[in-house]
């Protein structure tokens, strides 16, 4: 910890060092530091109010931080902004906006298209491909408010896909989606990982953590532990993160046993 300028820090997709966010009102996170290995699928878990969203937002300079350093592929976020894709929570969007799913996905390409030049058919084709990759190609022409929660989430994911970033920060992509969507999203996350992309995903469902992620950050106002799931996702660490909610932990250990058997 005492060596910030190590090699991993400079090449890691997201390296956070000594991050403290202080609000006059809550939430607060303090002394957060971790490096994420490139090409991994990272889950951020922790109880409600543990500062998970705060962490992502502070990493993207969306909220001021009291201290700390964030580097994205060895540079500041501002310098490497184009390499980061952010999938926000669904609530923050005006769903009545007159755009259809395809439009929303195409927006991910605008950065590449550049100022003033129009969207070409090839861009639309790329967006369409992304939509079919998330399995809702047939809904491309639907206005976004007419999509179900899961389909909206898939649209956002497709937008992130065409953005072709190297690091994705996703704020609860699994919140309030149907089982089929969850499965599809996980598939895509794995594909992205195979392409060498890194995803940092805020996640709520402890049971599925061992199945979905290969690296996990346990957060409860500060990092309780981080590392490969197999090392870090232990009952003791979970206990430290979540407290003595035994039923939950039982479920998790069951899930882990299931996973061990399947391996």
């Amino acid at each position: 910890m005492a060596t910030p300028e190590t090699e991993t820090a400079s090449t890691s997709p997201l390296s956070i060092y000594d991050l403290t966010v202080a609000y006059h009102r809550k939430p607060v996170i303090w002394d957060v530091e971790f490096d994420i290995p490139a090409g991994s699928l990272v889950g951020v878990v922790g109880p409600n109010g543990a500062g998970k969203s705060t962490l992502l937002k502070a990493a993207m300079d969306l909220i001021p931080r009291a201290s700390g350093r964030v580097s994205v592929f060895g540079k500041t976020y501002r310098q490497n902004r184009h390499r980061v894709g952010y999938v926000p929570q669904r609530e923050g969007v005006d769903w009545d906006f007159p755009v259809n799913a395809l439009d929303v996905v195409t927006m991910g390409l605008y950065g590449k298209i550049g100022w003033c030049s129009p969207v070409r058919p090839s861009h639309r084709r790329a967006a369409m491909e992304a939509l079919s990759r998330v399995g809702i190609a047939e809904l491309a022409k639907r206005q976004i408010s007419q999509l179900s929660g899961g389909q909206q989430q898939r649209t956002f994911l497709a937008r992130a896909l065409v953005q072709d970033a190297d690091l994705y920060l996703m704020d609860e992509p699994f919140a309030a989606v149907d089982a089929a969507t969850e499965k599809a999203v996980v598939e895509i996350l794995r594909d992205m990982k195979d392409d060498g992309k890194t995803s940092v995903v805020i996640h709520h469902d402890l049971q599925t953590v061992p199945d979905y992620f290969d690296y996990v950050i346990l957060l409860n106002m500060r990092v309780v532990a981080h590392g490969p799931v197999a090392d870090v996702f232990t009952p003791e660490n979970l206990n430290k993160t979540y407290g003595g909610r035994l039923t939950l932990l039982d479920e998790v250990s069951n899930a882990m046993r299931r996973r061990d058997r399947s391996l």
């Binding site: 202080a22 006059h24 809550k26 939430p27 607060v28 303090w30 109880p47 409600n48 109010g49 543990a50 500062g51 409860n220 106002m221 500060r222 309780v224 206990n239 430290k240 993160t241 979540y242 407290g243 003595g244 909610r245």
Partner: peptide, 19 residues
């Protein structure tokens, strides 16, 4: 505080007040 977070992790985030 750190210890409190560990021992009372479930209720801690709503009570911890570093300021």
């Amino acid at each position: 505080w750190e210890l409190y977070l560990i021992t009372h992790a479930d209720i801690a985030p709503s009570r911890v007040d570093r300021e």
